[in-house]
């Protein structure tokens, strides 16, 4: 067990009946690394995450996950409506067999760290606002002290202020301990702000078309960096095509990849390579 844990996805494909949603996807998440999957709605991001979480049965390809304690956040908070916020946070601890006093203490301190008030913790989910419910869901995921976090656009329904705040809380948690994160988002800026690697997916069938490594540490990324890097990513022809944006004639992917602090790598996509080389 000397090698650090890693999640590796190789040649994964998936189909619902005759409809192929994923084709030949490769990706890796190492411990201490944040990987973002971006792509338009319906490109198979959630299916891919469900495969990684073991919620969907894998049919094609290989997924090796040697993280011991993965935790997941879904698009909706998915709290148990009949449990108080505190009991929701401590759910994973209860499942692990921790005694009540200990898990309540941990859940309470974590809830307070994430901006919940004492009396919020005793409320039922329906008595909490959407933002508070998201905090509870985040606390529930962090409570089990995960070594891998799978995030499926957990804050997409929140306003930008709340979203930024919750991501800041998450980043602070990530700094304190090293864990692998695989996050899904359709927001390029969010991906650029938070992740070490941005994987851009294209739909029908879902596949990864671009890989961007961002060397600049997440804590030091300011708005200007995020804007310019996102803009560069958006100049890339494959990214534009994936999101259904009109092509920009003046630039091509090779130019876009040469900027500071981040590097865009075009992946082999035989169907599209000839057209791109023609355009550049």
């Amino acid at each position: 067990m000397n090698t650090p844990p890693r999640l590796s996805v190789r040649g994964v494909g998936h189909a619902f009946a005759l409809h192929t949603v994923l084709e030949n996807v490769d990706l890796d998440v190492a411990t201490g690394e944040v990987v973002a999957l971006v792509g338009p709605s319906g490109c198979g991001k959630t299916t891919l995450l469900h495969l990684c979480a073991g919620l969907t049965t894998l049919r094609t390809g290989r997924i090796d996950n040697d993280f011991a304690r993965p935790a997941c956040m879904f698009q909706q908070p998915r709290l148990l409506p009949w449990k108080s916020a505190l009991d929701n946070i401590s759910l994973g601890l209860k499942a692990a067999g921790m005694p009540r006093a200990e898990r309540d203490r941990r859940a309470r301190s974590l809830g307070l760290q994430l901006g919940l008030a004492h009396d919020d913790l005793d409320k039922f989910p329906h008595q909490l606002s959407g933002g508070m419910q998201s905090r509870v869901a985040l606390a529930r995921a962090l409570a089990i002290d995960p070594d891998l976090l799978l995030l499926d656009e957990p804050f997409s329904a929140l306003d930008i202020g709340l979203k930024t705040e919750l991501y800041a809380l998450l980043l602070r948690h990530l700094e304190a301990r090293s864990l692998g994160v695989l996050m899904i988002t359709h927001d390029l800026m969010e991906a650029v702000r938070l992740s070490d690697t941005v994987l851009v997916m294209a739909p029908t069938p879902g596949r990864i078309v671009r890989r961007m490594h961002i060397a600049h540490p997440a804590a030091q990324r300011d708005d200007a960096f995020v804007y310019s890097t996102t803009a560069r990513l958006l100049q890339d022809a494959a990214v534009r095509e994936s999101f259904g944006l009109a092509a920009v004639e003046a630039t091509c992917s090779r130019d876009a990849g040469t900027a500071v602090g981040a590097e865009i790598i075009a992946l082999d996509d035989p169907a599209r390579t000839p057209r791109r080389s023609h355009r550049c």
Partner: peptide
């Protein structure tokens, strides 16, 4: 079904 998935992810016995 969503809560069932959640229960699986959090490894509820």
């Amino acid at each position: 079904g969503q809560l069932r998935d959640m229960a699986r992810v959090f490894r509820l016995p």
